[in-house]
Design a protein around this nucleic acid. Structure first.
Lengths: 239, 239
DNA sequence: AAGTGGTCTAGACCACTGA
DNA sequence: CAGTGGTCTAGACCACTTG
């Protein structure tokens, strides 16, 4: 229980003390914290030191501030989860299936907002575990004749955020939809599974600057691939 | 394009300027930022003001700092997603199915780390849209004879984090597993679906202080319930 | 030794809130 | 009006990194 923080900087001690009050329920959502002046007196600290602590709590989502009134304990958001969705599949083997330039189907055309005659690069991949297919991954990128970076794409085998990692890699964000589906024939074939084998399906849209649609992909996962893990809340609070 | 930030505080202007450099690729992962001294000169700002800007960038995950060396641009994490998983199902109707106190099956026993004779409260719920079932939700909590808050649990109909929202609501965190499955007979019956109807299944474990397992629940979702939406990256970068 | 960030202090002025 | 936080400044001392 007794935290070893005697060597910690003062502003960290203050942060930890208030955090502990919140985790322990001595301070609850809506409660007003001690004012800056009170905390300065309590910890014999300068205003800036106290403010640094309060700012840290705010960044952690534990408090918010209302100028002119004071600092308050926030309400926890238990329904917001973090999910790490490994795209690299480092623990699995990989196998390339096909790399095509083709005319996209309607789903892809709509997702990437493509004109009627536009072509796409299609990269499909099979992910294996112990030689058996566990996931099937298909990705589409608009194909611009004249600037074909196909080789780079193939080499990285993933979305352009990786290929573009050296230039403005922060200039992308992605949206993902996760659902459960039964496999289409193409997917059945790739995964060597039956038509009633439930798949976890993740559809991912990669968006760049000016809201340009840069890539669209779908990943079909068999149960053997493993489940998605998500977490919510403050793990430290459990300790 | 031209950002209206003439009225912004100085430290925000500095933050925005550096952020724009990172989003535009003028600063890339591994690059060292200008030193505090240089930024003080560039913006005729005090050290504290510059440091406030740099701290903000760090909190946003765009930079990190290496004491003695300088500030550096971080590597973006494109595989870490945020998922909002609504537990309340505010847009759906709800229907209680059963509320029991019973002996748990092995899955629940293991998840909640229960002794052999321990009982659990089971609350199952059906979520409807337009009168048709779209999801089935089952939750288990250890049943402690003597402190049964069943009424409160029922009233809130969800996990104890809500019932306990007035006392130390931050003292919980949850882990969730998401996968695709076919329904067991119990689930088929609740959802009025066939045995080959693929379901999105989320299993959630609620953990409290001292790593005590407080609740365990499973939510079975039909395609009509909607898909899970996840996002990754900085949406602002696309603007 | 010079340059870098990390911590801490003291003081100033402003805008907002509430009695 | 007194109390609250928001912004900004100037200066001090320390520990670390690099040459």
């Amino acid at each position: 229980m007794a935290r070893q923080n005697s060597g910690e900087p003062l502003h960290v001690k203050i942060t930890d003390a208030i955090r502990a009050d919140i985790f322990a329920g001595r301070l609850n959502p809506g409660d007003m914290l001690s004012s800056e002046a009170a905390l300065m007196a309590q910890y014999t600290a300068s205003r800036d030191t106290v403010r640094k602590s309060l700012k840290e709590l705010e960044h952690q989502g534990l408090t918010y501030t209302w100028p002119g009134k004071g600092y308050f304990v926030a309400k926890p958001e238990h329904n917001l989860f973090s999910v790490f969705f490994p795209d690299e599949d480092s623990q699995h083997e990989q196998k390339y299936h096909t790399i095509y330039v083709e005319h996209p189907d309607d789903e892809v055309k709509e997702a990437l907002e493509l004109g009627p005659k536009k072509q796409v690069i299609k990269i499909s991949r099979i992910i294996l575990t112990g030689g058996r297919p566990v996931a099937y991954d298909v990705k589409f990128m608009p194909y611009d004749r004249g600037t074909p970076l196909i080789e780079a794409e193939i080499q990285y085998a993933v979305f352009p955020e990786i290929a573009a990692a050296k230039t403005a890699p922060f200039a992308f964000y992605t949206e993902m939809d996760i659902c459960a589906e039964l496999p289409r024939p193409e997917v059945q074939k790739a995964l060597k599974c039956g038509e009633n084998s439930p798949l976890l399906v993740a559809r991912r849209l990669l968006i760049g600057q000016n809201h340009k649609k840069i890539g669209y992909g779908t990943k079909y996962m068999l149960p053997e691939y493993g489940s998605l893990r998500a977490t919510s809340g403050y793990k430290e609070a459990a300790e």
